[in-house]
Design a protein around this nucleic acid. Structure first.
Length: 379
DNA sequence: CTCAATAGCGCG
DNA sequence: AAAGCGCGCTATTGAG
C-alpha cells in the first residue's frame, strides 16, 4: 500500500483538455459530467447544485465511462482518505511521554448513548478493505503482551428480538442459527439449506435496514425490485415476523404519545417533533425523527449493555490483580492489552462478563480474538 | 488568519 | 432533495 499511497501525491488530473484538482468535487463534477459524453440529466445533485461525485454515483457510472476516470477517481479517493486521515495524521498524534496514541472518549457525544472517540477517532480505523486494513499493522501490543478483542455478535438484532418479542426471531437466536440465512429461509419460504448467497445477502440488508427504519423506496433502489415488489416483500417480511411490525408501530406510537422513547435501561431520547401535533417540522423532518425513534431503543440498549460490561470487567481486572488494561471500545467491541501469561484468563473473563452483562430473551453471543497487532487478531 | 458550511468517507 | 441509524476527520470553498 505504501507505493499506492505515494502514487497519489499529485492530485492534478488532465482530461478533456483541462486540468483539475481531484480533491475538488466541484471541479471534478464540472469536467466529468459536463464535458464528457455522459448522460447527466438524471444524475444526483448536491445541496449546492453541482453533480454529486459520491462513490455510489461513480460506481454506477463505471460501466458507461469510456475514459475510465470514474474508476480512477474511486481509487484515488480511497488512497487519499487513507493517507490524509490515518497514515499522515496518526503518527503526529503520538503522545511524546507515553509513545502511544490516546483518544478522547465522549460520554455525551451520541444521542443514543453511545460513546464517541476523537483526537484521534480510534473507532473508525479501516478494516473493510484490504488496503485500509493494513493501517491496523501499525497498532501493536507492547513486547511480551497481546491484544485481546471481544465483540458482541449481532447484538442489535438480538435486542430487536428481545424488545419485539418476535417468536421467529427469538427462536432463531436461541437455536444459534445464522440469522440472515434463517430470515431468508422464512421470507422466501424455503428450507435453510436451500438459501443462496444472494438471498442471504439480501435478507441481511433487510434485517439491518429494519433497525434503521428503512422503507420500500430504499429497498427497491438497492435491489432489482420495483417499488411495488419491494412493498410486497416488506409485507411478506412482516407477516413472517409480526412481532417486529408490532415493535415498529409501538415505538412510533410511544414517541407520538409520550414524546420520547427509551432503552431497556431507561435512557430516553425526546422527539418534540413527533409529540407536538402543531410542530412546524416538514414531512421529511418528521420521517427522519420517526426513524431515529425506531433506532434509539435498539442502538441505545446495545450501548447501555456494553457500558455495564465495561464497568464489570474493569472491576474484575482490578480485583483479580491483572496487569491487563482495557484500551478501547468500538460500540459492540472491547479491545484489551494483556501480558502473554494473562491472555487466556483475560479472554475467558471478558467473554463471560460481556455475555452476562444483561439478560435478554436470547443469549448474548461474544466472539474473541487474540494477536500481537490489531491486524493479526485470530480466532 | 479563523470560522462555518459542504461534500465525501472511514467505522459500528 | 430526501427517501436506513449513530459518529469524527479531511479537504474545499466562501466569508469576514
Amino acid at each position: 500500500m505504501d507505493e499506492q499511497i505515494q502514487a497519489i501525491s499529485q492530485p492534478i488530473f488532465a482530461i478533456a483538455g483541462r486540468e483539475f484538482n481531484l480533491n475538488s468535487t466541484q471541479q471534478v463534477s464540472d469536467v466529468l459530467f459536463k464535458e464528457l459524453d455522459l448522460p447527466h440529466e438524471r444524475l444526483r445533485k448536491t445541496k449546492s447544485g453541482h453533480f454529486s461525485t459520491a462513490s455510489d454515483v461513480l460506481e454506477n457510472l463505471i460501466e458507461q465511462d469510456e475514459t475510465g476516470i470514474a474508476q480512477k477517481m474511486l481509487e484515488y479517493r480511497e488512497m487519499q482518505k487513507l493517507k490524509s486521515t490515518y497514515v499522515d495524521s496518526l503518527p503526529t498524534m503520538i503522545h511524546p511521554l507515553t509513545g502511544r496514541l490516546h483518544t478522547s472518549l465522549s460520554q455525551t457525544g451520541a444521542a443514543t448513548g453511545r460513546l464517541s472517540s476523537s483526537n484521534p477517532n480510534l473507532q473508525n480505523i479501516p478494516i473493510r478493505n484490504e488496503a485500509g486494513r493494513q493501517i491496523r499493522r501499525g497498532f501493536v501490543a507492547r513486547p511480551g503482551w497481546q491484544f485481546v478483542a471481544a465483540d458482541y455478535s449481532q447484538v442489535e438484532l438480538r435486542i430487536l428480538a428481545h424488545v419485539s418479542g418476535d417468536t421467529g426471531l427469538v427462536e432463531a437466536f436461541r437455536l444459534d442459527q445464522d440469522i440472515h440465512k434463517a430470515t431468508a429461509a422464512a421470507v422466501f419460504s424455503i428450507p435453510l439449506e436451500k438459501v443462496t448467497f444472494e438471498q442471504r445477502r439480501f435478507a441481511k440488508a433487510v434485517n439491518f435496514g429494519l433497525i434503521y427504519g428503512m422503507g420500500a423506496f430504499r429497498l427497491a433502489r438497492d435491489s432489482e425490485m420495483t417499488l411495488g415488489e419491494a412493498e410486497r416483500f416488506i409485507e411478506a417480511y412482516f407477516k413472517q415476523f409480526p412481532g417486529i411490525q408490532g415493535y415498529l408501530e409501538g415505538t412510533k406510537r410511544q414517541a407520538a404519545e409520550k414524546g420520547y422513547v427509551e432503552t431497556l435501561l431507561g435512557r430516553r431520547r425526546y422527539f418534540e417533533i413527533l409529540h407536538n401535533p402543531k410542530s412546524s417540522a416538514n414531512h421529511n423532518e418528521k420521517e427522519r425523527a420517526r426513524r431515529e425513534a425506531i433506532n434509539h431503543p435498539i442502538q441505545g440498549t446495545a450501548a447501555d449493555i456494553i457500558k455495564l460490561a465495561m464497568v464489570e470487567i474493569h472491576k474484575a481486572l482490578q480485583e483479580g490483580g491483572y496487569a491487563a488494561k482495557m484500551l478501547l471500545q468500538i460500540h459492540d467491541e472491547l479491545i484489551f492489552e494483556a501480558p502473554e501469561a494473562e491472555v487466556e484468563a483475560v479472554r475467558e473473563l471478558v467473554v463471560r462478563l460481556m455475555s452476562n452483562a444483561y439478560t435478554l430473551a436470547v443469549p448474548l453471543k461474544v466472539e474473541a480474538s487474540v494477536g500481537k497487532s490489531w491486524y493479526a487478531l485470530k480466532e
